[in-house]
Design a protein around this nucleic acid. Structure first.
Lengths: 151, 151
DNA sequence: TAAAAATACTCCATAGGTATTTTAT
DNA sequence: ATAAAATACCTATGGAGTATTTTTA
């Protein structure tokens, strides 16, 4: 690994199959969660035809039926259920990384005024326990800010 | 959850920000792994200008510098390092789900001839231990095939 | 002065929209 | 008969290419 492949994902060499797009995942999940193409289209803020095309592409790409349209509400097939799990995981990662990068780009410094009677080291040590979503870097900055203010 | 959002990913309601595309992730990883835009473009089988545009889009999208071009080989920034991890995870999921769906679509049946002196139930029970990537469904099929052949 | 990245432009593949037809309840 | 999904057709955004101009080592 490291040269030519990421995991087993072929890069550059071999058939360059792009598999699926984020918007297709979003559309698919929207349909499953609303139970229909029309409602899903509404949820995803696209037209019914657009969302229909998305699913058609996915199903053609993987050569599997992903949704059982025979019943209402529309329900995922076995294959669809797999894709659902994977899709949610992908969107979850997208969300997380988005938040992380935003924090790195524009770190949110929480400035706290502390009475001199408080030990600022004690207060700073409380912060990591908050499990701030901004991560280590953010925490360090906050600690420094506190140090600056309370020193 | 379940109505309006996937995890915390906004769907339909709120600002519909699509964040990033699979191809951008692939391009980004290709650059990091090869240490340069030109080599990365080669690895990803696109033009240098295309891969440059991809990174530009990502950096504009997140409003962060992702790659330090000042040094050779090009190296990811802190933000880039985060994206790298997330990106690899996403591609990993894509790979996995692709394999799963392919197996569901066209299950690979391994037909095994077994001497009548063998207990076919015993042999079948050995199979799940193989941890076949095709999962339960595939295993069940194999068992059935064995039953048919050895009965 | 090379090698590499950014930029300018052009092209076209396709995501998405509207309107309509087909299908299923 | 009615609601929903598929299809036909069109438009326009933007991904990717070639050629060129900055940049940096």
């Amino acid at each position: 690994m490291g040269s030519g492949a990421i995991g087993s994902y072929p890069l550059g060499s071999g058939p360059q199959i792009l598999i699926m797009e984020i918007y297709q995942i979003i559309h698919f999940i929207a349909i499953v969660e609303t139970g229909g193409f029309t409602k899903g289209a509404d949820r995803a803020a696209v037209s019914q035809s657009a969302i229909s095309a998305s699913i058609a592409k996915l199903e053609e790409e993987f050569d599997v039926q992903l949704l059982d349209r025979r019943r209402s509400p529309v329900v995922p097939t076995d294959a669809g259920a797999r894709l659902l799990v994977a899709g949610k995981a992908i969107l979850q990662i997208c969300n997380t990384v988005k938040g992380e990068l935003e924090t790195i780009a524009r770190p949110k410094v929480l400035r706290i005024g502390i009475p001199q009677s408080f030990s600022n080291r004690y207060v700073a040590n409380l912060l990591p326990a908050h499990q701030l979503s901004c991560g280590d870097r953010g925490v360090r900055w906050v600690q420094r800010a506190i140090g600056r203010i309370a020193r």
